[in-house]
Amino acid sequence: MIIAEWKPLSELTAKLRGHKKILLVGCATCVAECAAGGEKEVETLAPLLRMALHKEGHPAEVVTRTLERQCEWEFVEELAPLIPQVDAVLSIACGIGIQAVAERYSEVPVYPGVNTTALAIREEPGLWLARCQACGDCGLGETFGICPVARCAKSLQNGPCGGTRKDGKCEVDENLECVWYQIVKRAEARGQLDKLLEFRPAKNWSNSLHGGPKRVLREDLRP
């Protein structure tokens, strides 16, 4: 899923100061799963915002709405009757949802309430870990199903750097596994360590952001 994290309340109020009626809009898909932007978080954040704005001398009304998916136009359309009644929107969906609302309702300012940070999995309750970086050149078949692009701090392609700690953690963060340590362990368990001997040449990054903003066109699905 796409994961996001709340921005500090002070950053939100600094942007919203002066607005009288604010629509706080969430999304019931990825950001709900990662407990950042679903209905529950919308209803938690709304009173906090009201109180903070009031305390700072800029009282405002905060109305709430959570869309099924903020990244699909048909759901975004549901906000149409609400928009003329507000003078600002605060979205706590991922960056895709925020932009969809900003595009459909370009007449009002739309602010991000979260930072979108990764494509991740919920590892344990309250813990999410990045899994994919949408690099556009998937090599999971060569790395035993573990992605070094997203999960190695240096996105190394040919094995671990010298920074693997004694306990198999990454030198950049003692709480994170060295992903190449994990790949090697999985290769060993399968008796295929020699597969990691193969030189992996420089990646082609052009099918990701580095090739320019991504555009996928499927003629078979065109009207």
């Binding site: 040919n158 094995g159 060295c178 190449w180 340590y181 090697v184 362990k185 060993e188």
Partner: peptide, 20 residues
């Protein structure tokens, strides 16, 4: 870094460097 974990892989990594 021959003594960094995973130690079994470190010699293979050296071999990759030689081959490269």
């Amino acid at each position: 870094s021959p003594l960094a974990p995973p130690e079994a892989f470190r010699v293979l990594r050296l071999a990759k460097k030689v081959a490269a």
